[in-house]
Amino acid sequence: MVKVTYIAHDGTETTLDGAEGDSVMATAISAGLDGIVGECGGSMMCATCHCYVDDAWSDRTGPRKDGEDDMLDCAADDVKDTSRLSCQIKLTAELDGLVVHLPSSQL
């Protein structure tokens, strides 16, 4: 299992156990976490799974995937250097302990 901590806009922290290969988005959705919508199911058709990767982890999550920049352009909240679509971050053993921050809104 890979632990992922989601820090909501209001500061609430939720730590979930994800499976290797699952995305940060899917892990949140399957636990019913509010704050990530994932409307298109990870098809890169929306920007409703926007997250900010914690500074301590952004090297390990790597650069944005092809097309991610373009989708993030339509994110509801500010896009920062650490902004990612959480459907495009796949969990690996190296990401155990990952921390992501959630925006104030996804729509």
Binding site: D22, A26, I29, S30, A31, G32, C40, G41, S43
Partner: peptide, 20 residues
């Protein structure tokens, strides 16, 4: 949507659930 795409390839039915 994934029924005719990813699901046909992977068979991962749990991944289709919208909310638990």
């Amino acid at each position: 949507p994934p029924l005719s795409k990813a699901y046909l390839k992977t068979g991962a039915a749990d991944a289709l659930t919208l909310r638990p």
